[in-house]
Amino acid sequence: QLNAMAHQIQEMFPQVPYHLVLQDLQLTRSVEITTDNILEGRIQVP
């Protein structure tokens, strides 16, 4: 299920590496919260 959620987020934010999306999802278990984390700059994109 997390993989499906990660792919959904990757479609919206292809610039964010998959492993970072998955790592955040493991903590949040939420597409909405992880999306917010990306938008708020809480996930550092190399």
Rank of each mutant, 00 (worst) to 15 (best):
L25T: 00
S30E: 03
H19G: 07
T28V: 02
A4C: 12
L20P: 07
Q44A: 11
E32F: 07
H7C: 13
I38V: 05
E11L: 14
G41S: 05
L20M: 09
F13W: 06
N3V: 15
T34N: 00
L20S: 07
I38F: 05
P17N: 07
L2G: 03
Q26F: 12
N37D: 01
Q1A: 12
M5C: 05
I38T: 00
Q23L: 12
V31H: 05
Q8F: 12
L20I: 10
Y18I: 15
D36K: 15
V45A: 11
Q10C: 15
Q8C: 11
L25W: 00
N37R: 08
Q26E: 13
V16Q: 03
P46L: 09
T34S: 04
E11W: 08
F13Y: 08
Q1F: 11
L2P: 04
P17I: 05
N3F: 12
L27E: 10
E32Y: 08
P17R: 04
Q23S: 09
E32P: 07
Q15F: 12
I38Q: 00
L25C: 06
V45I: 13
T35C: 11
V16P: 10
L27D: 08
A4I: 12
D36I: 15
L39M: 09
D24H: 01
T34V: 02
L2K: 02
Q8Y: 12
V21S: 01
R29S: 08
Y18P: 15
T35L: 13
N3R: 14
Q10D: 03
P14E: 03
F13I: 03
E32T: 10
Q44F: 13
Q10T: 11
D24S: 04
V45F: 12
H7E: 10
L2I: 11
L27P: 01
I43D: 01
P17E: 08
M5S: 04
Q15T: 11
L39K: 12
V31D: 02
T34F: 01
D36C: 15
A6E: 01
Q44G: 13
M12P: 02
P14M: 05
I9A: 00
V45K: 08
V16W: 08
E40N: 15
V16M: 09
V45S: 09
R42T: 05
G41A: 05
L27R: 11
M12L: 13
R42D: 02
A6R: 01
F13A: 02
P46M: 10
E32V: 10
D24T: 00
M12F: 07
I38S: 01
Q10L: 14
T34L: 02
E40H: 14
L22R: 02
D36T: 15
H19E: 15
T28Y: 04
Q8S: 09
D24G: 00
G41I: 04
F13Q: 01
D24R: 00
H7I: 12
P46Q: 10
V31Q: 07
T35M: 14
H7P: 01
L22F: 08
L39S: 06
G41D: 05
M5L: 11
T28C: 06
E11F: 09
Q44Y: 14
L39Q: 07
T35I: 15
L25Y: 00
Q1D: 15
Q1R: 12
A4P: 04
G41K: 06
V21E: 03
P14I: 02
Y18V: 15
